[in-house]
Design a protein around this nucleic acid. Structure first.
Lengths: 355, 355
DNA sequence: GTGAAAGCGCTAACAT
DNA sequence: ATGTTAGCGCTTTCAC
């Protein structure tokens, strides 16, 4: 300790205060003293840098180990001006889509030596923003946002301060940030094609939202129908009053002659509701109605019949997002927008129409 | 700037280096200079502390605003010796149980002015440990662990360094940490009671694990059966070869005279598998078999018949865990173990037995 | 190869 | 009420 000993008094006082609460946590200084070397030697040794002899390093490391030394990330970040942290902002952590995407992000982060901090928006507009702020305050070097509900103007502002990659469909392009999305157009086309190949022509679409991804699926559904089945008027139910829409569909099937024989839904959750309602109405699935979902979530295999669904490569999307974030952190300037092809996972909820 | 001006050179150089990457981020120093006051005045002003006149504060705040100043959490933590961070370590973020528990933790954390950092163990033993380490390195002041798969010896070691609250059942009591759990015994009893009241006596239990919570449910099932239905030998299937166990149950129901008329499962996931297998085997639910799950997860309402299930007060459990953590951080020494009563959510998967 | 010293951005004790 | 100063624990020149 080379600084004036007069000044040591308050310092010591604080030390005592802290150890009372149990976290006496040895510092680099303690290690240096115990090992009989300088602070810088310790610093170099623990970071595996050149500048200390092999013998010294080993000695230092063993002393550090013994003392239970752990380097203080905050102090390090302070001086280095970087934290090695990236954030993942999740719209909702209670589902398999988010789980898998996050896993992908995590894997890629590990490869780049970045630490992940997960934040949870809880499907709430304002909370998403608050959490994003909070991530920034934490000093993350970039954020992967798994949600498309953060207002674009807000995103644009944040993107100026820190690299941002959004996984999902934004209402419109936002300058300064990257996006990763699945090709909703292709997903919808795959669904329609599959149903058509089974022999269906009266195919309806059931949607519960007008958010961008839903919109893309809806539009592409309509377009695919016009292309593949030009003689049929595509029927679209929702997004308002989803319950009523489901009831109406079932009514049609029970009563009307030209009723749909298949439904492509905006996502698995809605498909599950439809399946439930059909079973409640004693419809026979899949013979009276074929159903295709979107997301290939874990419920697909729980339902009976098991749900045919469009599968987004979730893990891969997470990985790509983090890789893109890493490029940005590394200095890439131009925006990058990547879309990935989904594929159809065929299960038991689709079959040839009865007649 | 009172320090030697000769030393300013390298500092300035670094500044330039940084601003090249876009994060020029004004410091408290810049604000002070721009506002024509001292650093400490700024510090007091932004933290809303007394010591500056109202006029000065407003002036400082407006200057800070204008410069886009944001206080550096790392620097503050470094000098204050605390971070205001608490960690939540999740076994698996892809389900509604974890979502709801986390929401509870979040709510309570907000009340205590603590920031949440979520980490994801991905159902992996080693990863859980690594993430816990990583949280500690981040400087969290406590951790809520939503998992019972972290090895007790490891927990015990960590608990010495930082307050820990585990939500879930540990294999055995670990000194130095608190726990929150639902009363699995009561949950199992509720299930058996409900089925008995419907007229069932041949009730089986289907389990897929021997982890503590599963074990408690299993034991309590056996005990409840002995108490309530002393004439019947309780049948327990699993935890090994769950698939075979399910097949066997179905075989019994189809072929044997004294087959079970109801099954209480260890959790909803297993219940869902059982439901699926029954439907595949053309059993009529709930008339040929009543099923009770555990967790009241979101799949309960998706299945047909909708699943009767034991409900843990998840949000409440999260809140309690964080409150307990807060007490610990505040200095509580003695361990605290809380259990909460579950309740039964009755739906359509349970009905009187056919005969 | 090693140590001394400066300073990251901030707070808190101390002077004024 | 305001400004000054000494560090928090660490990294990083820069001498030796």
């Amino acid at each position: 300790m080379t600084t004036a000993s007069a000044a040591a008094a308050p310092t010591r006082a604080r030390r005592v205060e802290r150890s009372r609460r149990g976290d006496k946590q040895p510092t680099i200084h303690d290690v240096a003293k115990a090992a009989g070397v300088s602070k810088s030697a310790v610093s170099l040794a623990i970071r595996n840098q050149t500048g200390v002899s092999e013998a010294t390093r080993e000695h230092i490391l063993s002393v550090a180990q013994e003392l239970g030394y752990r380097s203080n990330v905050w102090a390090r970040s302070l001086v280095q001006g970087r934290t090695g942290l990236v954030g993942v902002l999740l719209q909702d952590l209670g589902n398999s889509y988010h789980r898998d995407v996050t896993a992908g992000v995590e894997d890629a982060a590990a490869e780049h030596d970045l630490r992940l901090v997960i934040a949870h928006g809880r499907r709430d507009h304002r909370r998403l923003q608050a959490e994003l702020d909070s991530l920034l305050a934490l000093g993350v070097e970039g954020v992967v946002i798994v949600s498309s509900s953060v207002p674009p103007t807000y995103l644009e502002r944040i993107a100026k301060r820190v690299p941002l990659v959004v996984i999902g469909r934004l209402p419109h392009e936002v300058p300064g940030l990257d996006t990763v999305a699945n090709q909703d157009e292709m997903g919808a086309r795959l669904a329609v094609q599959h149903l058509m190949e089974l022999g269906h022509s009266r195919i309806a679409h059931l949607t519960g939202s007008s958010r961008p991804a839903a919109l893309h699926r809806r539009r592409s559904f309509a377009e695919s129908m016009r292309n593949l089945l030009p003689d049929v008027e595509p029927q679209i139910e929702g997004p308002e009053r989803l319950d009523a829409a489901i009831k109406y569909l079932i009514f049609q099937i029970q009563q009307e002659k030209g009723a749909p024989t298949a439904v492509f839904t905006q996502n698995d959750r809605i498909a599950a509701e439809l399946v439930g309602a059909c079973l409640d109405a004693k419809l026979e699935l899949p013979h009276q109605l074929s159903i295709v979902g979107y997301d290939n979530s874990s419920v697909c295999r729980m339902l009976r019949p098991q749900l045919t669904s469009v599968d987004q490569p979730r893990v891969r999307m997470g990985q790509m997002a983090l890789d893109m974030l890493f490029e940005r952190i590394g200095g890439r300037i131009e925006d990058k927008h990547v879309t990935i092809a989904p594929r159809l996972e065929v299960r038991d909820s689709t079959a040839p129409p009865r007649d």
